[in-house]
């Protein structure tokens, strides 16, 4: 019997009492540092690099327009597509989209609204110009071309 009692004792269990604390810390970090995703992007999005970029502060005052080739080419076809909110739309719908965005903002802040054009690096300027023309028609003159901070190659 002594053969059995000689058996080595296993390693003491690792104390995991502080594990929840660590995970909560990570959780709070992500809750503070990130923002909720509001739309699912349905078009290709490789943003261009630029050095002269300006950060936009207030997300409430930004209307996003996504441009790029649709990820689901079979449904939407090839070529540049414009995504407003959660669906692929035609250029002429940009106006009503901006009007809707204006509705959600206080009247005194509407002058500060910006339209952010998030366009894929491979799309053509013609599509962007069409959007710009629509925006000019309804006096949404502040435009930001989305870009990442980085050296241009």
């Amino acid at each position: 019997m002594s053969k059995f009692s000689k058996k080595k004792k296993g390693l003491p269990p690792i104390n995991t009492a502080s594990l929840p604390d660590i995970v909560f810390m990570l959780l709070f970090f992500f809750m503070v540092a990130t923002t909720m995703r509001e739309t699912t992007v349905m078009v290709a999005q490789t943003l261009p690099n630029a050095t002269e970029i300006k950060k936009l502060q207030d997300k409430r005052l930004i209307a996003y327009i996504y441009v790029g080739e649709a990820q689901d080419v079979e449904t939407y076809g090839e070529g540049d597509k414009i995504q407003l909110n959660d669906k692929i739309s035609a250029v002429k719908e940009v106006k009503s989209f901006i009007f809707a965005a204006r509705e959600g903002v206080n009247e005194d802040e509407r002058d500060y609204m910006t339209t952010m054009i998030k366009a894929d690096i491979n799309c053509t300027v013609g599509t962007i110009n069409d959007i710009k023309k629509e925006l000019r028609d309804i006096d949404a003159l502040k435009v930001t071309y989305s870009a990442r901070k980085g050296e241009i190659e």
């Binding site: 630029a50 002269e52 970029i53 300006k54 950060k55 936009l56 997300k59 930004i62 910006t114 952010m116 710009k132 925006l135 000019r136 003159l141 502040k142 435009v143 930001t144 071309y145 989305s146 870009a147 990442r148 901070k149």
Partner: peptide
């Protein structure tokens, strides 16, 4: 959100 800001005419 960052990018190149321009003002349309």
């Amino acid at each position: 959100d960052a990018g190149i800001s321009r003002r349309l005419p």
